[in-house]
């Protein structure tokens, strides 16, 4: 088992953002986390990557308890992530941004190696033409791709993607899923994709999914089975959909 999250809880004041959640991720697995806005997905990511410490519970990575490890010590073990709102190093070039991932992630490359790794992943995500541009000047979509390249350059064993496909058209989503499957198989990376709305994408990508609702784990299992579960449909569409059409407004899948 690559990652074990055991009974993890995080509170912000009176709000319980994540409420005793447990799940496991196998090596090289394609895992999806779905849930509406505010269901605790990002907080969960922040605890796995070390931005927050959980109030209780344990996080085990590759057999090692990393619950108390600071964020910078987790990346070299092989945990890479992207951010919901991309966070490039804006005045550095795309090439330098991605190279930073290679230098300080699991790859621990020197400057020259890092540049080579950087070029490889920049090409893989299709940003070669932007390689020498300042990352701050990229379009939001390009920034997402750059973050993906930067996380891949870390040579992670666990890649946590935060809404990486948001705002993309179906063709781009298809390409990204294909790319993720490729790196997953070639480099044996467990990829976790977190989405709010893109159910169609998650059915194409993930083998297993976990559904979060109000900080709790609602359900976990094989993708199609879980997404067709009545309780999940209820969380996403509201009860009224079965009672009458009017309740559907404001909620789209």
């Amino acid at each position: 088992m690559l990652l074990k999250v055991e009974d993890v809880t995080k509170r912000f004041g009176g709000l319980v953002a994540v409420d005793s959640v447990s799940f496991e991720i196998k090596e090289g697995e394609a895992f999806g986390i779905v849930g509406p806005n505010g269901s605790g997905k990002t907080t969960l990511y922040n605890m796995i990557s070390g931005v927050y410490q959980p109030d209780s519970g344990r996080i085990i990575f590759d057999g090692r308890d990393i619950t108390d490890l600071p964020a910078h010590a987790r990346a070299p073990l092989g945990i890479g992530r992207t951010f919901q709102i991309p966070r490039p190093f804006p005045s550095a070039t795309v090439r330098e941004n991605v190279a930073v991932g290679a230098m300080f992630g699991r790859a621990q490359a020197d400057v020259k190696e890092a540049m080579e790794i950087s070029d490889y992943y920049i090409e893989l995500v299709g940003l070669s033409e932007q390689a020498n541009k300042a990352a701050g000047t990229l379009t939001p979509l390009e920034k997402r791709l750059m973050e993906l390249a930067r996380a891949l350059a870390m040579k992670p064993r666990l890649l946590l993607l935060d809404e990486v496909m948001a705002g993309m058209n179906p063709k781009d989503i298809g390409n990204i899923i294909e790319l993720l499957q490729k790196v997953r198989q070639e480099e044996k990376i467990a990829v976790v994709a977190m989405v709010e709305h893109l159910m169609h994408a998650i059915t194409k990508f993930a083998e297993r999914v976990m559904v979060m609702h109000q900080g709790r784990k609602l359900l976990e299992g094989p993708t199609m089975e879980v997404l067709n579960d009545e309780r999940v449909i209820e969380v996403y569409l509201g009860k009224k959909i079965r009672e009458g059409a009017e309740g559907a407004e404001g909620h789209r899948t």
Partner: peptide, 18 residues
């Protein structure tokens, strides 16, 4: 490169392993 990352976005730098 580490200092550049810190200057530009300290939280992102930390998650990158710096």
């Amino acid at each position: 490169y580490a200092l550049m990352a810190i200057r530009e976005d300290e939280d992102a730098a930390r998650v990158m392993g710096i």
